[in-house]
Design a protein around this nucleic acid. Sequence first.
RNA 1: GGGCGAGUGGCGGAACGGCAGACGCGCCAGCUUUAGGAGCUGGUGUCGCAAGACGUGCGAGUUCGAAUCUCGCCUCGCCCACCA
Length: 860
Amino acid sequence: MTDAAPPRARPERHDPASYEAKWRERWERDELYRARDDAGEPFYLLTMYPYTSGDVHIGHWYASVGPDVVARMRRMQGHHVMLPMGFDSFGLPAENAAIDRGIHPAVWTNDNIERMRAQFRTMGASWDWSREVVASDPGFYRWTQWLFIQFYKAGLAYKAMAPVDWCPKDQVVLAREQVLGADRRCWRCDTPVIKRDLEQWFFRITKYADELLDFSQIDWPDPILHMQTNWIGRSDGAEIDFAVAPVAGVDDGTEPIRVFTTRPDTIFGATFMVLAPEHPLTARLTTDDRRTEVEAYVAAARRESEISRLAAERERSGVFIGSYAVNPMTDEPIPIWVADYVLPGYGTGAIMGVPAHDARDWDFATRYDLPIEHVVAPRGTEPDVDAAFTAHTDDEVLVNSGEFTGMSAAEGIRAITAHLAEQGMGGPAVSYKIRDWLVSRQRYWGAPIPIVYCDVHGPQPVPDAELPVLLPEDVDFAPTGVSPLQSHPGFLAAVCPVGGEPARRETDTMDTFVDSSWYYLRYTSPRNEEAAWNEEAMRHWMPVNLYTGGAEHAVLHLLYSRFFTKALRDMGHLSFDEPFLALRNQGQILGADHQRMSKSRGNVVNPDDLVTQYGADTIRLFLLFIGPWDQGGPWSPTGIEGISRFLARVWAVGQASFVETSPPSVPGLPGFNPMTGEIPGSGGTNADLQLATIEGEARNLERVMHQTIRDVSEDYAGFHFNTAISRLMELTSALVAARDAGMAETEAYQQAVDTLLRLLAPAAPHITEELWERRGNPYSIHRQAWPVADAAMAAEDLVELPVQVDGKLRDRLLVAPGTPAEEIERLALASERVQAYLDGRPPARVVQIPGRLVNVVTSR
RNA sequence: GGGCGAGUGGCGGAACGGCAGACGCGCCAGCUUUAGGAGCUGGUGUCGCAAGACGUGCGAGUUCGAAUCUCGCCUCGCCCACCA
């Protein structure tokens, strides 16, 4: 370029700090993201509300930015989006801060909330803060208490003595779901839990076990559905009564023992019976000569259950109790044993031992020399009575089973269950692994359970008018194993709502998962003081259209919330079956050391510093770009610079007032579009070429633009943010090339820039708003219509078809779309390179996938 | 022990029956810059001077064609774990 370019102003350097805060303030002032109840076509998009742990870290950003992109695109597409935000602010860490550092839990929590709000605001996410919900706010927990009472009145909340999991460090009981791993550790502090018999409050989630297994109305990730299914653990089988052989002086044999089995077809092979140590009949059926040994075993088993145990590797143990049951099919007496491999809480706490076909029974029988009878065998094989343990196969038939011999296992199950039912000795039965949800906690920082105990009238719910039962502030937080509220006389003293007698208040508080089981309902009318939610608003917004959060809540929050919804529906409070229609899980951002981020490991990444250095948009884009959003991964800042460069390029192409003058790389030739490769060789002069190219460039740019609209729209909706950003980078590269080719003043270029900004706006809201304004467009870009792809414009003029010979790439054809197959085949076979590889052999056939490829096959 | 998922360049990843490695990082060379930084252009899977050959954890299979589907194995991750 020898012509002296006219002097022009250099482009302004890209400096996010100069505009990001300004726009955030403007959007808030204008209530740009306010969700209105009276607007049409609602779309409720929700992110699991964060725990008030202290500081916002990079994981919060990662979890928030994905749904924010979707919310922003949906708004531009015309939906009325509600994207609320709040805080899961009850829980143990607040109380531990009080114990460790003498800060009141409320103070600690509120300080954290204030700091986190400010930190969250730097993200520029489109949350509607006017709907903020805080679980520890009396205005919220009043309704948590009200809901408890509804559950109590509906018979879904009850108090019972039960062996429960107890964390000795946190001095509190845990729900079964909060005990993790084979060594049974506390979900919060990792301490091995112990068993204690305590009277506790439960929610009757087991009543909904079957309905919770039905996922037909929801679009959730398969792994979550699997986890919930396995957790609920439905087993279909039969319950069978085994008569007890009368033992003089011990038992008259009137009460049978009921067992649960999934394989009633193997009953002819039941050669012994096992009771759980806790089974009520154990003591009654023990003969005097066995009593000492049995009692010692039962006592040992109870101690055993109180220490951490790695159960799977232990040798099976048990004790014969001296009496016999009768196998109802063979009429043979079978010995009754007690053994701790039978669990008290599952099935009936008693089993029939079928050692030939159950691995555990086999171990037990071989250790104690009990008889082994084979009663099923793979179809077509001779039953081998001396065979070792036989695992079940898909196609097995009954053997040695009287009139049932020869039936398939499935037939046998039906026939034997029916037979037993006729005899009044059992029938079909279902068993579940899931237990009722233990919701009481011996802690201060939670919603007090609104029950008072009266000596005359028993436990009574606190009347609605007296809610909330407020947490007192002057409390001694030292952990004692009972709620700190118990040593607060003012809190403890109550009056019976029925008769006015002096009464005692319940001092346990609710599990924080009770709060999160309904907070999404509160967002629909968060300031309502008359009710937990406004009926009309609930119907307008619920159910949540799209929910996002971590997969670690699969059998906790996500299961509890489904239970709550179904229970409240049955009480007449809700009008739908499922709370969250669609669910997407984000992956976890780990520390650089591949460990979970935690203060104690010192691997926490603080986004504030990154925002100061690069700006919020860069961090947002970087998090979206590092990989599939549902995958997460270890934190590595490598690559932030690449995003920073990308935004600088967007900044350069987005400024209307400035036309870049950087010279093409090859003097005399225009820069060419990297999207489409080179211009085919031309004999024309440079000037001819330049002109032809500019026309071609306009068409190319248009095509790339429409392809990008199509791909980015799909990718955002599908949470494939990483590929969406890469497409936007390609469009930006195309714009840079077009500008260098001298097209900056063309309509095509200007349109493409505006389109780029709108497509990028959900991911990078600040820079796009700034450039949108600088280009003279009306405020706000976030209120503009989403671009729509024109399929015809996105179509390629020429397609390049790979030509294979026997599956190996040998040549390429450049053809117009819609070229007839015969013509393509002719061109392919005419190719010199194809001819060379054919080497005179005739092609056996030619495979064509229209628009994709040609494969010339020589053999067969 | 059971269930689910994943293994692709130096790195993050893309493609998910049809041109393997899009996009980005890093690296190399050149240009530009008073210098530093930044920026720009080109290159960058492996072997080979090249033609070319080989290449998606390993081994088989299906197919005209496999990173993608099927079977077996190995490794890693997550969930459950004596559930009859």
